[in-house]
């Protein structure tokens, strides 16, 4: 399946991917409104990890055999027919069992009061995920690589 891959050698640590992930999953999908008028906007599903010059954006791998789905105690997580691993946020109770087993550390949490996870949904419905299309340096790509 098509997945998002990071290219650490070109990531400039700008975090535009995080910002646009939030915009893409907001109510208005307008960057200024999202940040100025939606205090309950979602947390980014992609995280930029950074240490000195090394940085890259990372999000769910949509594993062929997702540990998180197996582990989820509520059935909130599932893998759909296209292979996308999705979270039904209404069901999630924030027990962090999935976080405890995700072998990539790819699951994020909502900030503040909301005790729920947020995870990449490949921007279901969009031709290209928001983080990918808004990266200024092609440091994340969305492509089919197959098993290496």
């Amino acid at each position: 399946m098509k997945r998002i891959y990071a290219r650490e050698e070109y990531c400039v640590g700008c975090r535009l991917c995080e910002i646009f992930c939030v915009v893409g999953h907001s109510k208005s999908k307008d960057i200024i409104k999202t940040y100025k008028k939606e205090p309950d906007r979602p947390a980014p599903r992609v995280a930029v990890w950074e240490d000195g010059p090394l940085s890259f954006a990372f999000q769910c791998r949509h594993c062929d055999q997702p540990s998180c789905v197996e582990a989820c105690i509520t059935g909130a997580l599932s893998k759909n027919e296209e292979g996308t691993v999705l979270c039904n946020e209404d069901k999630c109770v924030g027990c962090w069992t999935c976080i405890t087993v995700c072998p990539f550390g790819a699951i994020q949490r909502e900030e503040g009061e909301k005790k729920k996870i947020v995870k990449c949904n490949l921007c279901s419905g969009e031709p290209e995920p928001y983080c990918v299309s808004h990266c200024p340096n092609r440091a994340i790509v969305y492509e089919e690589r197959g098993v290496e």
């Binding site: 400039v12 640590g13 700008c14 975090r15 535009l16 910002i19 960057i31 200024i32 940040y35 100025k36």
Partner: peptide, 10 residues
């Protein structure tokens, strides 16, 4: 400005 700090990092 949404105080996203992109300018800061860049």
């Amino acid at each position: 400005c949404i105080d996203c700090k992109v300018c800061v990092t860049q």
